[in-house]
Amino acid sequence: MDLSNYLLTGQPYYHPVGNEVALFEAAYAARLPMMLKGPTGCGKTRFIEHMAWRLGKPLITVACHEDMTASDLVGRFLLDAEGTVWHDGPLTLSVRHGAICYLDEIVEARQDTTVVIHPLTDDRRILPLEKKNELVRAHPDFQIVISYNPGYQSVIKDLKESTKQRFAALDFSYPEASIETEIVAHESGIAHEDAAVLVRIAGRTRNLKGHGLDEGASTRMLVQAGRLMSRSIPLREACEVAIVLPISDDPDMRRALTETIAACV
């Protein structure tokens, strides 16, 4: 089967913050299963897209959710005029044909679902399709990557220890101010100075993490505020719409954020 649909055509923009690119390349060379950790909107998904492009491999992304079953990952029999036909799920597809399989927000899936990846993550690199009575050996290009946000929701939803320990991990956090400014300016097309103000505002909101906010404003939020600004919305309004209102429902917290933004401009 042709996975060319899953190949990335243009280079996804990614600004490295450390040596994560080299680390990931080494991990891919060894076909180590990788885990990307970090708060929401800090660039995990962008990073894996960038790496898939860099390595020239197809990327199959699965957004995990609570109702996902193992069949949704592995595949199932469907009916057609001739009888039953097996359809590979996204995981089987990547295993058979050699893609990077990216399970986004893996903790959202139920723990009994995630165990199907276990045989793929050790040196066996196999995927047993029990319903089809088939053992799929992984294509040499296949690699599994999962992402997960160790935030407060992980109190309820956490990875099993036996799943965790199969992965090597890269820890992502928000990039330092100068790099983040560059990213925001590049992604939203606003002037460097404006991006710097946005980044400064984000820094202040991140101070409030644990003091009323669960997370500070993410890089993605800043890019969105920047995009509004590039369509000539004034900075304070853009921040109100893209940062203050989405991030908190608490009127006190909103007021504090609005005042903080006013202080930064």
Binding site: R204, N207, H211, G212, M253, E259
Partner: peptide, 15 residues
């Protein structure tokens, strides 16, 4: 009335 907001303001600006 605005105590909570003021506290958050100080944390945001200067921790």
């Amino acid at each position: 009335d605005i105590e909570a907001s003021l506290r958050a303001f100080l944390i945001a600006l200067w921790k």
